[in-house]
Design a protein around this nucleic acid. Structure first.
Length: 485
RNA sequence: GCAGUCAUAGUAUAGCCUGGUUAGUAUUCGGGGUUUCCAACCCUGUGACGCGGGUUCGAAUCCCGCUGACUGCACCA
């Protein structure tokens, strides 16, 4: 389905909706998850924990969202996470200083250069506003981090622009206390904050958003010594080379040099296996190796996991080989030791990062799962049963003749074990349609026969087929059908 | 951030140009009835002019500002 249909579903069924919407001064780029959305998000994260964190014996932490200035001085975000901008004194138009200068003079000044360099060039070349020919004010840095003032003295701190910095600064303690051994994955789910200039398209570009990040610490000398590589060597991945998407096993990718080593290939394989289980149409996915100019300032090798949606290719995961950029910067700035022992060798670990955008992933799952069933005039969210916001609807065929009471009884039997929804009112077909729309994979219906032989019907969402089972079997059937793979 | 288009119930829309009724319709939703296995039907009810200011006797309608949404550009760790 398309963006518009997903948006409509999201608003009508409270998957997500704009934040602070009752006030006129609500800002763009902030959205809330309603009950249905939260339920899918929690299940998605549980799958992520199973398929990545637990499978690879990673450690999960939950760090602060507000972090001190030093963290971002060391990480480079205070210097590099900012664009040089110039503003026209006359008409107020704002330009990227480096881009405008490059456009007019063909001189490339790196965006991280001193602000005076931009001012100097603008004076020398007599660059004026392209719209009104007005003069420019001196260059400023627009930093995409949100500054916060701490305590009565308003001390400088920032909302984290990525969750991973707490993983880096916590690394020495975690490695010691958790008896770490390289390679070691440390994971975190949480919110990050970026002051985007133009947030857009609901969950796809937010100022406050969820990330699920994994930082794998490794010995850079042992990137091809990885026993567990055999677990995924035959997993096929889709990887874009030049303009063509090629399908190959992880082993082939390493052998052909498409992926630089087994270590990176292993995690791209794991990630592929994870996303297959989310129900995203993997034939519309690709790993794309980023060029020099596209990569983040800390990345040595970077692959984006992207999925094609009705509004184009969407980056769901950034996989960056960050080398020892972060640990050495934090070691230098903090004067703490970040080296660890790997058997007899003392190493400053390198980091491979798997940085997942949760909001975008959820959007993509919805878009790829939402189907229009024209024959039966219904919208169906064919989401995997283990990700469905509601597992099962519990319905009475009619309210009278004691069926309502019997239905309540069944609901009470399963309500703490499954996400269940009790519904007595209206036509049975309408109630099935409502459940289809929020992706409930099953509906239990109590009818007159139930009173005679203690059986109910179970209706399946996708093919609308029904079969009759004994109430005593319900729990085991539902447990089996809604279990994680 | 720039430009264009737009903003009316949960959702989708009419009305605006040309100011003046109880803001209409569809759907959804709540209550009741009837029927019973796929959005049927009947009765009934709740529910909206994004925010702020101006013009006017009177503003959903005209004007200004703000905010947001969509599309394109730019940006995107």
């Amino acid at each position: 389905m398309n963006y518009e249909s997903v948006m409509k579903l999201a608003l009508e069924r409270a998957f997500y909706f704009p934040s602070c919407e009752v006030y006129g001064d609500a800002q763009a780029g902030f959205w809330e998850y309603g009950p249905t959305g939260v339920s899918v998000k929690n299940k998605f994260l549980e799958l992520w924990r199973r398929e990545l964190v637990r499978r690879d014996r990673m450690l999960e932490i939950d760090g602060s969202q507000i972090m001190s200035k030093s963290v971002f001085e060391a990480s480079g975000h205070l210097g590099n996470f900012a664009d040089p901008i110039i503003k026209c004194k006359k008409c107020g138009l704002t330009f990227r200083a480096d881009k405008l200068i490059a456009e007019i003079t063909n001189v490339e000044i790196p965006e991280s250069a001193d602000l005076e360099d931009f001012d100097k060039m603008i004076q020398e070349k007599n660059i004026v506003c392209t719209k009104c020919k007005g003069e420019f004010d001196s260059a400023k840095k627009f930093n995409m981090m949100f500054r916060v003032g701490i305590g009565p003295e308003d001390e400088e701190a920032y909302l984290r622009p990525e969750t991973c910095q707490s993983i880096f600064v916590d690394f020495p303690r975690l490695f010691k206390t958790m008896r770490g051994k390289l390679p070691l994955g440390i994971a975190q789910v949480g919110k990050s904050f970026r002051n985007e200039i133009a947030p857009r398209q609901s969950l796809l570009r937010l100022r406050e958003f969820y990330q699920a990040e994994i930082e794998v610490f490794c010995n850079p000398g042992k990137l091809n010594e990885l026993d567990k590589f055999s677990e995924i060597e035959n997993t096929t991945i889709r990887i874009q080379i030049s303009d063509e998407i090629q399908v190959m096993t992880c082993k082939e990718a390493v052998d052909k040099g498409v992926i630089p080593n087994k270590f990176v290939a292993y995690y791209l394989g794991l990630l592929t296996e994870f996303y297959e289980k989310t129900g995203i149409d993997m034939s519309k996915s690709r790993f794309r190796k980023l060029g020099e100019k596209e990569k983040a300032f800390y990345a040595d090798v970077a692959f984006d996991f992207e999925v094609n949606t009705t509004i184009g290719w969407l980056e769901l995961v950034a996989c960056n080989y960050r080398t020892d950029y972060d640990l050495s910067s934090h070691a230098k700035k903090s004067k703490e030791k970040f080296e660890v022992m790997d058997n007899d060798e003392k190493v400053l670990p390198h980091v491979f990062e798997i940085s997942m955008g949760i909001d975008r992933s959820l959007y993509t799952i919805l878009e790829h799962s939402l189907k229009e069933d024209k024959e039966n005039e219904r919208m169906v969210l064919s989401i995997k049963p283990y990700l469905a916001p509601t597992h099962v609807g519990v319905l009475s065929l009619v309210k009278k003749d004691g069926l309502s009471e019997k239905t309540d009884e069944i609901y009470r039997l399963i309500r703490t074990k499954f996400d269940s929804f009790l519904d007595h009112s209206g036509a049975i077909g309408r109630r099935y349609r409502r459940l289809d729309e929020i992706g409930a994979p099953f509906a239990i219906t109590v009818d007159h026969q139930t009173k005679e032989d203690n059986t109910v019907t179970i209706r399946r969402r996708d093919d609308m087929a029904q079969n009759r089972v004994n109430i005593s079997e319900l729990e085991s059937i539902l447990a089996r059908e809604t279990a994680y793979p």
